[in-house]
Write a protein that binds this DNA or RNA. Structure first.
Lengths: 115, 115
DNA sequence: TTCGTGTTCAACCAAATGGTTGACGACAGG
DNA sequence: CCTGTCGTCAACCATTTGGTTGAACACGAA
């Protein structure tokens, strides 16, 4: 398979509105492929493919229950994203704080180039 | 343009490791296209395309400074993702709480698998 | 064993994606 | 004005993506 990191797969999986909707519905309850497919105007096979993408991203897992393959959401994977996001959000905010402090510490400026 | 919602564009933009790295670097300081391109083993044009994707997602904006086009990160857009993520994380956790409560309210089980 | 239901596999297709190279537009500095 | 630098536009190409249909597999029930 592709040599792509999980974070990329997670973001990529959630970039599709149908998949995002499926994830949203799975927060309420586990569901079978047919149940998941029902609201959408696409074939069951297409939904099956979407589920494979979600599974490759680690966002869902599947049990076997007779012919059924109930799909279960693995919410912990959300942390992968929030960790990344918060890390850089923090970094950006830190930067703004420093910038504000700098501006405040300056008297009024002509054309100062400071390093 | 594509009739795709912003959240999809944001997730999609961050699904690419190069773009994620560019965003990471932009948390430290604004940068020009050439500066951004320097560490990667691709053409400047390719980086320019990546920036367009990030811009369409609302993740960056560009000023004009003579020939330069300094790129600036718009961190607020992160909120779009965290809002979505936290909403469904909460929903999933809520569900587990209810499930736990239900199990606890039951008398002892025939096929109890407890660890 | 045969049938029906749920799901996946395989082949195919159109559109999108990420890369390339080459030419061009915008601008500062001789 | 000419020149060099920064960046984008255009055309092209290979790969991936999201969809289709038809066949096959897995399993419970009859």
């Amino acid at each position: 398979m592709a040599a792509v990191d999980q974070l990329s797969r997670v973001f990529s999986a959630l970039a599709d509105p149908t998949r995002r909707d499926m994830v949203a519905r799975l927060t309420v309850a586990d569901a079978t492929v047919n149940e998941l497919a029902e609201p959408y105007d696409v074939s069951v096979q297409a939904v099956s493919k979407h589920l494979r993408v979600l599974e490759d991203a680690g966002l869902v897992s599947r049990r076997r229950d007779a012919q059924r393959r109930p799909v279960h959401l693995e919410v912990e994977v959300f942390d992968l994203m929030t960790t990344w996001i918060e890390r850089y959000r923090r970094r950006a905010e830190e930067r703004y704080r420093r910038l504000d402090a700098l501006l405040e510490s300056l008297p009024d400026e002509p054309e100062g180039d400071i390093e």
